[in-house]
């Protein structure tokens, strides 16, 4: 039951983070700080899915490296391209 409550909390947290992302887009807010906030938000949501929904904490280290590595690599590369484009 405790685990279900934790996952429900994570689900609601991700819904709130999604609404904050939408608000940024709705008001056409831009700038490096905003882009970084949006990418960090996406990385947090992705990390929560990998850790808590896919339940990767108990599996082989290699799978954890692949999943978290993919998420970090994608978010970091996008961040770098936005910095370059400023």
């Amino acid at each position: 039951m405790k685990m279900v409550n934790r996952e429900m909390f994570i689900w609601l947290l991700m819904m709130l983070l999604t609404l904050s992302t939408y608000a940024m887009g709705k008001f056409a807010v831009d700038g490096l700080a905003v882009v970084m906030f949006l990418l960090v938000t996406a990385a947090i949501k992705g990390g929560l899915i990998i850790r808590d929904f896919m339940a990767l904490q108990g599996v082989a280290l290699l799978w954890q490296i692949i999943m978290y590595g993919w998420l970090m690599l994608v978010c970091l590369t996008i961040a770098i391209t936005y910095i370059v484009g400023l």
């Binding site: 939408y22 949501k45 899915i49 990998i50 896919m54 998420l71 978010c75």
Partner: peptide, 19 residues
């Protein structure tokens, strides 16, 4: 199914929001 969700979580801000 979680992988499909994970991909969309990056795709949505990247294509629709970040500018």
């Amino acid at each position: 199914w979680h992988m499909v969700d994970l991909v969309w979580i990056i795709l949505f801000p990247l294509v629709y929001i970040i500018r």
